[in-house]
Amino acid sequence: MKTMKNIFPRAALLFLAFTVLCGILYTGAVTGLAQLLFPHQANGSIIEVNGVKYGSALLGQQYTDDAHMWGRIMQLDVMTYRDENGEALLYAAPSNISPASEEYQALVAERTAKLRASNPQMADTPIPVDLVTSSGSGLDPHISPAAATYQIPRIAAATGRTEAEVAEIVSACSTGKFLGIFGEETVNVLRVNLMLDGILQPA
């Protein structure tokens, strides 16, 4: 019993010290530095123009019309979750469908048919795999340069722009590999579409 009486105050003191150190001081320091050095990224990489917020550059948005670039397949659920006011909440997650299943093959076939029908100019071009598959998050904001290039003729025809003009927008929204070796080259779909709408301007 005496040993427990000696250990408990020390354990409580350590618990309090680490709570303050890790839960308050460290968190506050990291948050403060993030706000000071990287305020845009720390606040969600929100794309804002003239006071209007159009979304986060880190979260995909679903576009299905011919005049805009399409992203990856999105797994969206607006039926399951509600907020405190009963309003539907958007929820995204991976489908967890086995790539070997008939259901998955049917989804890929459906997406492939839709892409072929909407991009007849690219009939002889293989469809990039990221246009017929979803990411683990279900809200991937990026596609590959090949997936973006595949859509350029359709977008040009639908918007009245030349393919060179659309390609210039795609280039302005492209990001290379980190340090030239890490990761993959990507194209941000939301930025492309905001530029197609004239909301953002190519740098």
Score class of each variant (00 low, 15 high):
residue 104 Y to L: 06
residue 31 T to L: 12
residue 177 K to T: 12
residue 75 Q to L: 08
residue 67 A to W: 00
residue 123 A to P: 05
residue 24 I to D: 12
residue 28 G to A: 08
residue 33 L to H: 05
residue 157 A to C: 04
residue 41 Q to R: 11
residue 11 A to L: 15
residue 182 F to G: 01
residue 48 E to C: 05
residue 189 V to M: 05
residue 29 A to H: 14
residue 149 T to A: 15
residue 116 R to A: 12
residue 133 T to V: 07
residue 9 P to G: 09
residue 120 P to G: 03
residue 117 A to M: 06
residue 45 S to H: 09
residue 159 T to W: 02
residue 118 S to L: 12
residue 113 A to N: 08
residue 196 L to Q: 00
residue 32 G to F: 08
residue 187 V to Q: 03
residue 123 A to R: 01
residue 62 Q to M: 14
residue 177 K to N: 06
residue 181 I to G: 01
residue 183 G to C: 05
residue 109 A to D: 10
residue 66 D to C: 02
residue 1 M to I: 14
residue 176 G to L: 03
residue 46 I to D: 10
residue 70 W to K: 11
residue 198 G to F: 01
residue 155 I to Y: 02
residue 132 V to E: 08
residue 106 A to I: 04
residue 85 N to L: 12
residue 111 R to D: 00
residue 62 Q to V: 14
residue 120 P to D: 03
residue 196 L to F: 00
residue 107 L to I: 10
residue 12 A to L: 14
residue 151 Q to F: 08
residue 120 P to V: 07
residue 192 V to T: 05
residue 41 Q to D: 12
residue 191 R to T: 06
residue 4 M to E: 15
residue 198 G to S: 02
residue 113 A to G: 05
residue 16 L to G: 12
residue 129 V to N: 13
residue 151 Q to Y: 07
residue 29 A to N: 11
residue 117 A to C: 07
residue 182 F to P: 00
residue 30 V to R: 09
residue 27 T to A: 12
residue 187 V to E: 06
residue 42 A to F: 09
residue 32 G to M: 11
residue 9 P to N: 08
residue 63 Y to K: 07
residue 171 S to E: 14
residue 43 N to P: 03
residue 50 N to I: 00
residue 72 R to W: 04
residue 45 S to L: 07
residue 136 G to N: 09
residue 56 S to C: 06
residue 135 S to K: 04
residue 16 L to Y: 10
residue 146 A to Q: 13
residue 25 L to A: 15
residue 58 L to S: 07
residue 97 I to R: 11
residue 161 R to F: 03
residue 145 P to N: 01
residue 86 G to K: 05
residue 184 E to M: 09
residue 139 L to V: 11
residue 172 A to V: 00
residue 191 R to C: 06
residue 175 T to S: 12
residue 123 A to M: 07
residue 9 P to H: 10
residue 91 Y to T: 10
residue 74 M to K: 08
residue 9 P to K: 09
residue 96 N to M: 11
residue 188 N to L: 01
residue 21 L to Y: 11
residue 139 L to G: 00
residue 53 K to L: 02
residue 172 A to L: 00
residue 117 A to F: 04
residue 146 A to K: 11
residue 196 L to N: 00
residue 158 A to D: 06
residue 85 N to P: 06
residue 179 L to F: 12
residue 184 E to F: 09
residue 203 A to L: 09
residue 108 V to E: 13
residue 145 P to L: 01
residue 167 A to F: 00
residue 10 R to E: 13
residue 76 L to F: 10
residue 49 V to Q: 06
residue 32 G to E: 11
residue 121 Q to H: 07
residue 110 E to G: 12
residue 94 P to F: 08
residue 2 K to P: 09
residue 153 P to H: 04
residue 1 M to L: 13
residue 35 Q to H: 14
residue 50 N to K: 10
residue 129 V to L: 15
residue 127 I to P: 03
residue 135 S to I: 01
residue 162 T to I: 03
residue 31 T to I: 13
residue 73 I to K: 08
residue 128 P to H: 06
residue 181 I to Q: 08
residue 126 P to W: 06
residue 184 E to I: 05
residue 84 E to L: 15
